[in-house]
Design a protein around this nucleic acid. Sequence first.
DNA 1: CGAAAATTTGACATGACTCAACTGGAGTGG
DNA 2: CCACTCCAGTTGAGTCATGTCAAATTTTCG
Lengths: 194, 194
Amino acid sequence: MTRDLEIITTIFKDLSFTQEESQLLVRSFEKLHLPKHSLLLEAGQHVYDQYYVAEGCLRTYYIAPDGKEHTVQFAIQDWWISDYTAFFNSSTASMHIECIQDATLFKISKVDMELLYKAMPRIESYFRKKMERAFASFQKRIIANLSQSATERYLNFINTYPNIEQNVKNYHIASYLGVTTQSLSRIRKELVQG
Amino acid sequence: MTRDLEIITTIFKDLSFTQEESQLLVRSFEKLHLPKHSLLLEAGQHVYDQYYVAEGCLRTYYIAPDGKEHTVQFAIQDWWISDYTAFFNSSTASMHIECIQDATLFKISKVDMELLYKAMPRIESYFRKKMERAFASFQKRIIANLSQSATERYLNFINTYPNIEQNVKNYHIASYLGVTTQSLSRIRKELVQG
DNA sequence: CGAAAATTTGACATGACTCAACTGGAGTGG
DNA sequence: CCACTCCAGTTGAGTCATGTCAAATTTTCG
């Protein structure tokens, strides 16, 4: 009862719950703090959980056979993060998740998710809509990757994540955009000089 | 009652329904046939519907400001297709959908979708899982675009869609992979000759 | 068959990559 | 407080993959 109701007031702030439902929610989540530079997940590990970012910044990245890193996603406040392919299939991760800025997370297992879905269909609605938005934004990114130059994608990026540049390294952005750090450096130089 | 129950035996073949539910389902969908080369959707149109592909082949593509086409998605049997960004937001399309091979579709509006979700939470479950798979496959594609060469992406493509090559034009594949038709032609030549 | 569309080929241009060297801070320890 | 190191970022020179433009060839289909 007196346990941490943060989950309800942050993650599900737009929904309302009975006492019983609230308790189920609170029991399903676990709060955790993660320091900068730590790894939340490594490739090869079994993925049981997904995480809600209450504070901080993380990134998901894939290491290709040639050793190069590719940033798949950044997660800031109010985003969810996991290796979703592995999470959905209850299998092992092919990606790493790194904490870029000290973070506060709420963790929930797939099993508990399914229980929540059964108990409260409107939670499933909430996540279906989340997925729809994520789907749309991934699609947008695919189009951007197909149709835009590296410079355009960079401008796009700093528009989409206006405040992120203070936190993340250049090579994080480069590996998100699909260019080398050298190229990104040249792109910026070009933009400054006009 | 004696109306077309195909929907239930094709789209939702893994679920079971009461008579009443079946009727609601049947009423929600509309069957349509679409000839090759016709457009199911054009950029600028309001998107009310999504479509289940019972037969045939379609593609969603985006036309960039420079006039170039970029294929976002192919849809074959048992896939769903729409301009999802617009569908989810009930807004206007930024993409076109073209029929590549004579197709049979089942169409459902967003409004009717929402009614189905309310009436049958397991339908919402079904679509949430669909979304999850689509999300995972988009993510895979983003990684592929970031980490693989054009040749690797092509090999990947013909693996993922083994039978599609008979149906689709070369330039459809090229615009899906993010290369020019000339480059794709050279890639194939290289592969044949070793 | 013949026109239009699709694909291939050639010559050349260019954006991005690689490798290597250099610069500039941030932090550390004597 | 300064020297040292480490890491991120920048710059330069050369290379390579892919794009562009134009022409030739093949395929499709009325």
